[in-house]
Amino acid sequence: MPKPRKSAFAHLRAKCRITLAVAAFGILLAGCAETQLAVHGVKRLGGQSQQPAQIGNYKIGNPYEIAGQWYYPAVDYEYTETGIASWYGPKFHGKKTANGEIFDQYEVSAAHRTLPLPSIVRVTNLENGKSIKVRVNDRGPFAHGRIIDMSRRAAQLLGFERKGTAKVLVEVVEAESRQIAAIAQGKAAPQVTSAEQSTVTAAPRDVVETVRLDDGPITDAGEPTTSSIKLTPPSSSASVQSAPLDGVVEEAAVVEVAPVASSSIYVQAGAFSIYDNALNLRNRLYDLAPSKIESIDVKGTTFYRVRLGPLETVPEADILLERVIATGQNGAKVVVECADGGSATSVC
């Protein structure tokens, strides 16, 4: 007996069922991707701790010489310095950093001449009060008059990408520097925060692997970020690890803003423990610019600093610095000094 033929309506109805099933499966996968992106967004925007994309080799390094200037890398958890920051980007994008990472100008990182790699520092823009924590993973800058080189992304967050330079305060964050150093040496593993654990536990059971979230350049027009996501089939053996690991990783790039006192730029020609030596240097540099001798106590020892200025702009400071170095003062540097009477609650 021949089978009855299905009507055109029956065929159409079956086809619709298949289409709806495929669409529903697509929505489920999309839901998984959106959940993973939401977790990432919480970590980025909400200030939760997250593991850096890279943690290279731990490195201090031997003393080295660049253009006649010697630098002495060392562990210094009391490090704090004011000066001029610059930024670097396209020319070095995709190249190796001094500790073996791959430099990404769209990630928050920085280069320093002597701090251990990696280290965590807080950099404050003394012109607008913005500050962020930054992972130092490279050596530099080696231009006279600069104390730190920020990635392009970090410069954008601090508000000086277009200007190119900024007066900054750089301070080591001791606890996080010790922790990231331990992770880089394999002595500790990155920690999963309680917020991340609860979020991941509540997520769909399908396995979602985020390959990369590329922030891309930040523009005034506020271009949206783009992402690349890879979905893998669910596995019956897949499980969510909820137990925290030892160690802590770098904090997400959260910009903080605090009041800043007015500040001026000086060239520090030298610092001496004997006042007469400072006086002799000031007399030798007398014709270059107005100068002064300031005393400062460092761990019980009084030093006398010879400073020339104040100077209005970074280019003026660069010119004067080169003139001072030409007199034989290879250790001369550009510093930022807060005006007298600054607010007790302000930075600097």
Rank of each mutant, 00 (worst) to 15 (best):
F9G: 05
K15F: 10
A24N: 02
I27H: 00
L28D: 04
L45S: 07
L45K: 12
G56V: 05
Y58W: 13
K59S: 12
K59C: 00
G61M: 04
Q69Y: 05
Y71R: 04
P73N: 07
D76H: 08
P90G: 00
K91C: 00
K95S: 09
K95F: 00
K95L: 07
A98Q: 07
I102T: 15
I102E: 01
V108A: 04
A110T: 09
A111Y: 03
A111L: 03
R122M: 09
G129K: 09
I132P: 04
V134S: 00
D138K: 07
P141E: 00
A143E: 09
T165G: 09
K167H: 07
V170Y: 05
E174A: 15
T193S: 15
T201Q: 13
E209C: 11
T210C: 00
S227Q: 11
I229E: 03
K230V: 12
K230C: 01
L231W: 06
P234F: 12
E250Q: 12
V254C: 01
A258M: 05
A258W: 00
A258Y: 06
P259I: 08
Y266E: 03
S273A: 13
A278N: 05
R284F: 00
K292W: 01
T301W: 01
R305S: 01
G309E: 04
V314I: 13
D318S: 11
R323F: 03
G328N: 08
G331C: 05
A332D: 02
A332L: 00
C348I: 00
